[in-house]
Design a protein around this nucleic acid. Structure first.
Lengths: 97, 97
DNA sequence: TGTATATATGAACAATTATTCATATAGTTA
DNA sequence: TAACTATATGAATAATTGTTCATATATACA
């Protein structure tokens, strides 16, 4: 007997799909320590501003990051503790292989 | 200061990529309850035998499932408690959105 | 107002990937 | 051995997706 219906399964796979790209994971990893603006993220993870912006859009749409304006910079941070939890569980698994 | 190097980030994203497909998540969900052979999985989640077999190959290669032979059936089960943990954390996140 | 900086976005392209279909392999049983 | 069942796999196809490049938008500051 399955407790989880098909729609939810798709939502879950969509969630993990977001974590399934190295640029996005780099962004998430960078934001664990502190909130950062777009160009700080780009330089920290060594990815073009455009690519970071495209990926932030996806992270934003999935509500995995939040942001606030400050001057003409936009500071991004992780949306909630779930994001870090999922990321860290992934780390753990990798470390134990 | 990042604690996690680039190689590991890629490994982590590769791991989540595996969870980022609904057929694979359906298989994982089906295997939480009990071990199942290929055709049982296929009929339980309503996906063709070939598609299930292709995805099991990927899950096997990532060491997320293990298997044993019994007669001419091959029974698959989740490799370790991490797999279920990651899946359930994904569920939790979805349920709280 | 004009210039510089920060961010977002559309289009194009390349690469990856999941499914289907056909078929191969292997074990079981009559 | 022959027929049947279970599983795996290669090739082809369609769809998705990440990056780049060019450019748009918006804010700050001189």
């Amino acid at each position: 007997m399955q407790l989880i219906d098909e729609d939810k399964i798709i939502d879950i796979s969509e969630l993990f799909k977001i974590f399934g790209d190295s640029t996005r994971v780099k962004i998430i990893n960078a934001l664990i320590d502190s909130e950062l603006c777009v160009c700080e993220i780009a330089s920290k993870i060594n990815v073009s501003q455009s690519a970071v912006s495209h990926q932030l859009r996806i992270l934003k749409a999935s509500k995995l990051v939040k942001y606030k304006k400050n001057g003409n910079c936009i500071y991004y941070s992780l949306a909630d503790e779930h994001v870090e939890k999922i990321f860290k569980l992934g780390c753990e698994h990798i470390n134990e292989l």
